[in-house]
Design a protein around this nucleic acid. Structure first.
Lengths: 251, 251
DNA sequence: CGATAACGTGCAATATCGTGCAAAGTCAAT
DNA sequence: ATTGACTTTGCACGATATTGCACGTTATCG
């Protein structure tokens, strides 16, 4: 087997399965683990994948602390993302926020779904490249690296030209009286602008966001019609939101 | 057996099986491996296949998807990217095109460089997330997934508000008389708009781009002041560009 | 903290590569 | 028919790439 062919196959497997294991690959290709390790090392040097102990992961759709945040309660986020994806009907125009949960959302879209996704997050845009049915519209602006989203006047201006069915919002805090909040002023402005241009706002809130409040307020909690939470969230936690007229969806 | 017959048969086998092995071919055609190697070398020079250690793979420089394209001559692209990175001075405002070479360029920027990067490629934006000194401005628009760049009227409009020092352009063809060209009409418009807003245009051209022409022309070759090519590019290939007044940099 | 798996590195065996060169074949002009 | 330029092919030889193994180190997990 050709070396470069093997490397291509590794990348294909990685793309298909989201991760590869060195030992498994060595058995599949009938070469020593040393060779696989060398391949992985070289592919990592070219930036085509991310090397980890025992195997490799796809080349960071994001980087640095963003990747670390992606590992916080991944199952819950993944479940919430799947639930959110099920709300999208063919032909709709939807807005995806930035943040780890929305990247998951992008990944969990059905492969065949025909729809338009508007986003100000390069990570989300890149995640949607493999979805042939999805038309992607990017909002430009100054890149706020911490969240990997575009912000600023250019973003606000571009958002004004959009009208969407649903906005899937990610936040750092959802609180019955303090409302929806986030950690950056610019981001708050952008989220507010996006919310204003969507017929319906859906908030994706993993457990640690509930009843938390961050410095910059986006809107009252019930500016969002729907709140998607993890499946095992106690009713006591969600009742105050239901009392505000919000629909609570459990993933 | 005629040489050209054999070459055609090699190409047919390559197309049929996705890869060819030098040793196998030499046995099949009952010629020495040297002869096969010569054939493969010549076919590779014509761009009809991609030579790899032990045999050859299909060339499809533009055909394959983004991930596959990233594997084409990674060392050369990496070298070209490093050379390009060295042209950027602190404090400058530079434009990065989309494409695999420019993603490499983003990765190879010195970690400490202070500068502003304007780009219409989400991939480039994401690649720059861990460069704390780099301010990133994204041009929004409709995502053209094949190249992972934003295009369309929104992109053109946003570009009009920018003025940059240098535009690092990636192309699919650089030809002395046919000019700079690319495979998509929308992309060509965007590249032209970007070129118009930069004081200097630098073209990054890995070997397979030189003397190639694609359907959509961006501008005459000497609209770019500088051409960065791989280090071992023969002078005979670059002379026509030098004759047009372009500065040739070897990586 | 210890066991185990995974890792990186150096090394040697092998395979493959590129180049120079000579032998054989081709072909047109003499 | 002969000559001479040219191409094709195989071989020799040194250079380079790939691979598996040995050995010491590091990461992971209970």
């Amino acid at each position: 087997m050709l070396t470069s062919h093997r490397k291509q196959a590794i990348l294909a497997a990685l793309k298909r399965e989201g991760q590869v294991v060195a030992k498994t690959l060595s058995e599949a290709f009938e070469v020593s683990e040393d060779t696989i390790r060398r391949d992985l090392r070289e592919l990592a040097a070219e930036g085509l994948l991310q090397r980890v102990h025992g195997g490799a992961l796809p080349s960071s759709p994001a980087a640095g602390d963003f990747v670390q945040r992606q590992q916080i309660s991944p199952n819950a986020k993944s479940a919430i993302a799947r639930k959110a994806a099920s709300l999208i009907s063919p032909g709709q125009v939807v807005i995806f926020d930035g943040g780890t949960t929305c990247v998951q959302l992008a990944r969990h879209l059905p492969a065949t779904l025909q729809a338009t996704v508007v986003t100000h997050s390069p990570s989300v845009a890149v995640a949607l490249v493999d979805h042939p049915g999805i038309e992607v519209v990017m909002i430009g602006g100054r890149l706020f690296k911490h969240s990997i989203v575009n912000v600023g006047a250019a973003a606000i201006e571009a958002i004004g030209h959009i009208r969407a069915d649903t906005y899937f919002m990610g936040v750092t805090g959802v609180h019955p009286t303090e409302g929806l909040s986030t950690g950056d002023l610019e981001e708050a402005y952008v989220k507010r602008a996006l919310a204003a241009r969507a017929a319906e706002v859906v908030v994706l809130a993993s457990a640690e966001k509930l009843n938390a409040a961050s410095p910059y307020v986006i809107a009252p909690a019930n500016a969002a019609a729907t709140l998607i939470v993890d499946g095992d969230t106690p009713e006591a936690v969600t009742d105050p939101f239901a009392a505000l007229g919000m629909v609570i969806l459990r993933a």
